Every structure is written in C-alpha cells, then in structure tokens.
Simulated scan of single mutants.
Amino acid sequence: MAAKDELGRAGEERAAQYLIANGYAVLARNWRCSQGEIDIVAASGTHLAVVEVKTRRTAAYGHPFEAVDRRKLRRLWQLAQAWVSAHPDRTRNLTLRIDAIGIIGPDPSRGSLEHLVDIA
C-alpha cells in the first residue's frame, strides 16, 4: 500500500475514533456507490453526518480543508443522498449534514485534529 494511502487510512481511523469518543455512532466507513465514496457516515442526536476526512503530513501545501472545495461539496451532497436512498430505515427523522475532519501531522494518531460541523 502506498504511503499516501496508509496516511489516509490512519487519518480515517483517527477520525472515526474521535467521533465515537464524542458520542457519535459510526454507521458506515468507506461506503461506495457508482458516484464515489463516503469516508464516514455517523449519527449524533437528530443529525446524520457525512464526514469527509482529509489528512496531511504538514500544512506546507495548504490546510486539509482547502481540498474540500465547491465541487467536492456538491459531490458529497450527491453521495449523501445516495446513502440515504440506500438506507431509508437508518435515516428516518435525521437531519442530513456534511462535516469535515482535517488532521495534520506525520502520525495521524497524534496529529492535530479539527472538526468542522455542517459545512454546506
């Protein structure tokens, strides 16, 4: 596995553990459909969050959140709708939102983590 892929997977694991520690129920990880992939789907209270995780070793080339641009947000909404359509029994009475988690550090398990809630 390429170092970039390992970094991404480690970041997603850290993000999932962070969400669980903060009271979220992780419903899916790396969910795929014909339109693409959702990193994490998690529920908290009355909210269903589709979470995009971006992990970087350093911020030398920009903050991880800079990669979540308008085009990426549009795709995340499409993927979120696809997930809801595929799992109607798990999404009743939940408000859908898009979140982002950015992790910076050579070791994602100890890097700085930021969680943006309801970014679009």
Rank of each mutant, 00 (worst) to 15 (best):
M1K: 06
A3R: 07
K4E: 12
K4D: 11
K4M: 09
D5L: 14
L7E: 09
G8M: 08
G8R: 02
G11H: 04
E12P: 05
E13S: 14
R14A: 14
A15K: 04
Q17A: 15
Q17H: 11
Q17V: 11
Q17I: 12
Q17S: 13
Y18L: 13
Y18M: 12
L19Y: 03
I20D: 08
A21R: 10
N22V: 13
N22I: 12
G23T: 11
G23H: 02
A25W: 04
V26K: 09
L27W: 08
A28M: 00
A28K: 00
N30D: 15
W31E: 02
W31G: 00
W31L: 14
R32H: 10
C33F: 09
S34L: 14
Q35V: 12
G36H: 04
I38Q: 05
I38R: 06
I40Y: 07
I40M: 11
A43V: 14
S44F: 07
G45N: 06
G45K: 06
G45P: 02
T46E: 14
T46G: 11
H47Q: 13
H47Y: 08
H47M: 14
L48A: 02
L48F: 01
A49K: 02
V50D: 01
V51F: 07
V53E: 01
R57K: 08
R57M: 08
R57L: 08
R57E: 12
T58R: 06
T58W: 07
A60I: 06
Y61N: 13
Y61F: 08
G62N: 09
G62P: 03
G62Y: 05
G62E: 12
H63G: 06
H63T: 07
F65H: 10
F65G: 10
E66L: 13
A67S: 12
A67E: 08
D69T: 00
R71V: 03
L73D: 00
R74W: 03
R74G: 13
R74P: 01
W77Y: 07
W77C: 01
Q78Y: 02
Q78I: 01
L79P: 02
L79W: 00
A80E: 03
Q81G: 10
A82Q: 09
A82P: 02
W83I: 00
S85D: 15
S85N: 14
S85V: 02
S85G: 13
S85L: 12
A86R: 07
H87P: 04
P88M: 15
P88T: 00
P88K: 15
D89K: 02
R90H: 08
T91D: 07
T91F: 03
T91R: 07
R92G: 11
R92A: 15
N93A: 15
N93W: 04
L96N: 06
R97H: 01
R97Q: 11
A100N: 03
A100Y: 00
I101N: 01
G102Q: 02
G102D: 01
I104P: 01
I104S: 03
G105W: 01
G105M: 05
G105I: 08
P108M: 15
P108F: 15
S109I: 05
S109C: 06
R110F: 07
R110T: 15
L116V: 11
L116R: 10
V117R: 08
D118T: 04
D118E: 15
I119R: 01
A120H: 04
A120C: 10
A120Y: 06
